[in-house]
């Protein structure tokens, strides 16, 4: 039994890191714009399709991931510049509806551009097969995806916490009016922040391509989990989403031992439980 728990723990941490990457981008956008990005799932799907197209053209997978990040970041910038910014003048609700609409538009564009048949891609030969840990086997690609996600999160963390740009960004999130008064272009910061968040969604999509393929509706599946992670981590906490992502992956994985059919439902039940006893989430401050 102990080996099975250990095996599911390893699997849960690996999957949880991918959830964390997705939720980290969502958390950045929530912090910047103070709105939940309902188009985040569609950007994730866009990243998967861009990555697929890149590798289909013969580019290495690494460049496919880069293209997924860049393409989704560009879409995020366009979304901010031409949809959210104009809608912000009409208030919070208008922005929410705009993001809902944008998600549907992106999904339909994916269908038009790539068709209704889902797409699959096998990882590069180096990442195929599994690593035997003695008590369990872990697919090499899942191990790679989790380590890669962790590295990306750490890099973005360093960018935000240890650079001048990051200081501006944090100031723009926490005190936008004061930041403007200091002569900093907050709108530009918001645009760059949106690009970063959207790019991370696209990167997560590219990373998920060998695991879940590319379908126009894949964003909706992942968005549900990403919001659960965001709420559990705490809406005000950028890094809470990372811890919560891993937690959700582990809980989901461990539940599969005793009640496999409930392994998805359990994460929603956990979210309700946490909201009841700690409405600000595990790491939220307010």
């Amino acid at each position: 039994m102990l080996w099975l728990v250990s095996a599911q723990l390893v699997n849960g941490i690996a999957i949880g890191m991918i959830y964390a990457l997705m939720s980290f981008g969502l958390s950045i956008i929530k912090g910047l714009l103070n709105i939940p990005n309902f188009a985040h799932g569609a950007l994730y799907a866009l990243g998967a399709y861009i990555c697929y197209s890149a590798v289909s053209m013969g580019l290495p997978f690494a460049l496919g991931l880069l293209a997924a990040f860049a393409g989704a970041a560009l879409a995020g910038w366009a979304l901010q510049r031409f949809a959210i910014q104009p809608a912000s003048k009409s208030g919070y609700l208008a922005q929410l509806v705009t993001l809902f609409g944008a998600a549907l538009v992106i999904e339909q564009m994916l269908l038009i551009g790539w068709g209704t048949i889902g797409l699959s891609y096998s990882p590069p030969p180096l990442l195929r097969g599994a690593v035997n840990l003695g008590f369990t086997v872990v697919p090499k690609y899942i191990a790679f995806a989790s380590v890669f996600s962790a590295l990306v999160i750490v890099s973005v963390w360093l960018l935000i916490e240890r650079t001048k740009f990051g200081a501006y960004l944090r100031a723009g999130i926490e005190r936008p009016d004061t930041t403007r008064a200091l002569g900093i272009n907050v709108d530009l910061l918001l645009g760059v922040g949106m690009m970063m968040g959207a790019g991370l969604a696209g990167l997560a999509g590219g990373l998920a391509l060998p695991l879940v393929g590319a379908t126009s509706t894949m964003g909706g599946d992942m968005l549900g989990i990403a919001f659960v992670v965001l709420v559990i981590g705490g809406l005000g906490s950028l890094y809470g989403s990372v811890a919560a992502g891993v937690l959700v992956g582990v809980v989901q994985s461990l539940t599969a031992i005793a009640a496999p059919a409930a392994s998805t439902a359990i994460i929603y039940a956990a979210m309700i439980g946490i909201l009841l006893f700690r409405p600000q989430g595990l790491f939220g401050e307010r």
Binding site: A7, Q8, N11, M222, P260, T264
Partner: peptide, 8 residues
């Protein structure tokens, strides 16, 4: 959409 916990 997540099967690795069963496949493990």
């Amino acid at each position: 959409r997540q099967y690795t916990q069963y496949l493990t």
